[in-house]
Design a protein around this nucleic acid. Sequence first.
DNA 1: TGCATGGCGCCGG
DNA 2: ACCGGCGCCATGC
Length: 171
Amino acid sequence: MTGFFKSDFSTSIGTLYYLWGVEGTNKEVNVIFLGNDEKSFKQYIDKLDVMFSGTEFYEKKCLELEEKILNYLSGKNSSIDLKPLFLMGSDFEKKIWQEAMNIPYGSTVSYRELAQRAGFLKAWRAAGTALNHNPVMLIVPCHRVIRSNGKIGFFGGGVEVKEFLIRLENN
DNA sequence: TGCATGGCGCCGG
DNA sequence: ACCGGCGCCATGC
């Protein structure tokens, strides 16, 4: 694994931090981290324990990401069209994240339903914990997962942000 | 290994 | 409608 680079930018839901990684022989560049919490961003980088190349080479790539996210946050685009690269996480967590990506824009499912769809009939509680470890907010749309009783539930990036995103997608 | 900890769910009062 | 209690399951220490 080589070619990590990172950056941040300002949005309507606060400063977003992101991290790219280049994978495999085809040199595919994908998003490893996207989040609004600087602390977890830094912790993530520490855990990866890698060297970073300069962002200049990837400036175009960064601008593309920022444009896609901003278009999504302004309601202009309903799809973000960025591919995540899960470098960390258990198989269970990856399956939950993967399944969450199948939730259509503008709709919601319960934690229970999500766990079931991913093949874990009774692991709804653990599914919530897995979503809390989602490394790429918005790309894995964990804000579309709410409680069975209709309540909003929690959100790593802040419940207000979760509410904002659900409202955004229903306008 | 056991036990506590989580973005939960369901039932009873 | 709201709460407490108990059940549920993957992780981390």
